[in-house]
Design a protein around this nucleic acid. Structure first.
Lengths: 190, 190
DNA sequence: TCCAAATATCTAGCGCTGCTAGGAACACGA
DNA sequence: TCGTGTTCCTAGCAGCGCTAGATATTTGGA
C-alpha cells in the first residue's frame, strides 16, 4: 500500500519536474529551444518518459501555461488589493498585466500564442483561468455603469492583450507604451 | 538586352507564383501545411529554387503577409468611404477589420502571429502597412478630441487585434462577439 | 530463496521539417 | 561548333515529434 503511494508520489514529482524544466528552458531560451530531446536530457530521463506523463508536447506547454495563468492571477490580485480607489486599482491591475507579459514573455506566449487547445470560456477551464478573469471582472465593476460587467472585463482584456501582442511583435513602437495604456484606460473608464 | 529583360520578367513571375501558391495553400489548409516541399511541388520546381528567390520560409510568409496588409487596407478604405458619418465610419472600419480576420484567418496569422521580422513602425515598413494604419488614423480623428490621433489609432488597433486574437484562440466565447465590439467602440468614442 | 509475471525504462528508428552542397543540363557568345 | 556561365535538380544533413519493441528492474507467489 505505502509502497505504491511512494511510487505515485515520485511519479507526480517527476511530472512537476518536467513542467518546471520546460518552463525554465522556455523562459531562458524561448519555446523554439524546448524540444522533447533537450527536455528529456535535462530531466535526466529518456524521451518516451515524457509521453508517459503527457499526451504530447502541446500538453506540456499547456501545463506550463496553466502555471502562468496562476501567476498572472496572483499578480493581478495583489495589484487590486494595493489600493482602495477603483481608478487606481484599475490602473494597478492593468500595469500588473503588462508587467507580467514583459517579464515572462515565454510564459505569456504559452498562454496566448503557442496554445490552442486549452478549454477556456467553459466550466472545465482550469481554476487559475477563472481566477484571473475574476480579477478583471472585479476591477471593472466600478466603471461598468449600465454596461455588462463580464463584457467590459473581456473588452479590457482584449485591449491589454492587443497592446502586449502588437508591442511585442514590433507592430507598435515601444516608447509610447505607457501613454497608450493610459489612453486605453481613460477611454474605457468612460 | 531584351533577352535578359525577358528572363527577369519570368523570374519575377515565378516569384509572384510562389507567393500566391503559398497563400492559397495556407488559406486552404493552414500554415502548418505549407512546407517547402509541398510548395515546391505545387509551383513545379524543386525546393532549392525557393531559396533563390527568398532567404528562407519566413521570407515567403512575410511576402504573403504584405499582400494581406494591402488587402486589409483596401477593405478598410472602402468601409470608411461607405458613409459620411464619423460614427458609422468608425463602426464600418472596425467591422471590416474583424470580418477580414474572420474570412482570412491564415492571412491574419501570417500578418500577426507567424511573423516577427517585418519592419513595422518605421519608414522602411511596406507601403501597404502605412496605408492600413492611415485608415485607422483617419477614422479616429473625429473622436480624438484632445488626445493624440496616432495614439488613439494604435489603441483602437490594439482593441481590435485583442478581440480577434482572443476570440480565435477560444479565449473569449464567440456568441457575444458583436456586443463586445460595440462596447469597445462606444467606450473608445468617449 | 528462487522464479515468473508485471512494471518501468531505454534504444533505435520512422517520417517529417527547413535548408544546402555539388553536379548535371542548358542556353549563350564567339 | 565549342568553351563558358547560368540555371536547376538530385541527394543529403541535422534536427523535429513521436512510437514500437527490446531490456532492465521490481514485485509477489511457490
Amino acid at each position: 500500500m505505502s509502497i505504491q503511494a511512494r511510487r505515485e508520489r515520485e511519479r507526480a514529482d517527476r511530472e512537476r519536474l518536467i513542467v518546471s524544466v520546460a518552463r525554465e528552458l522556455a523562459e531562458a531560451e524561448g519555446w523554439e529551444a524546448v524540444t522533447t530531446r533537450r527536455l528529456a536530457e535535462r530531466v535526466e530521463y529518456s524521451q518516451p518518459v515524457l509521453y508517459s506523463h503527457f499526451k504530447g508536447k502541446d500538453a506540456i506547454v499547456a501545463a506550463v501555461a496553466v502555471e502562468g495563468f496562476a501567476d498572472l492571477a496572483a499578480k493581478m490580485r495583489a495589484a487590486r488589493g494595493s489600493t482602495r480607489s477603483p481608478q487606481r486599482a484599475l490602473a494597478a491591475v492593468a500595469a500588473a498585466y503588462i508587467a507580467f507579459a514583459e517579464e515572462h514573455p515565454a510564459l505569456y506566449d504559452a498562454m496566448f500564442n503557442q496554445l490552442v487547445s486549452l478549454p477556456f470560456a467553459t466550466p472545465e477551464a482550469p481554476a487559475a483561468l477563472h481566477a484571473g478573469f475574476d480579477e478583471l471582472r472585479q476591477v471593472v465593476r466600478p466603471i461598468a455603469a449600465d454596461d455588462d460587467v463580464d463584457l467590459l472585463a473581456e473588452v479590457l482584456w482584449s485591449g491589454l492583450h492587443g497592446l502586449v501582442s502588437l508591442t511585442r511583435g514590433g507592430r507598435l513602437p515601444r516608447p509610447d507604451h505607457e501613454r497608450r495604456l493610459a489612453l486605453l484606460l481613460s477611454r474605457l473608464s468612460g
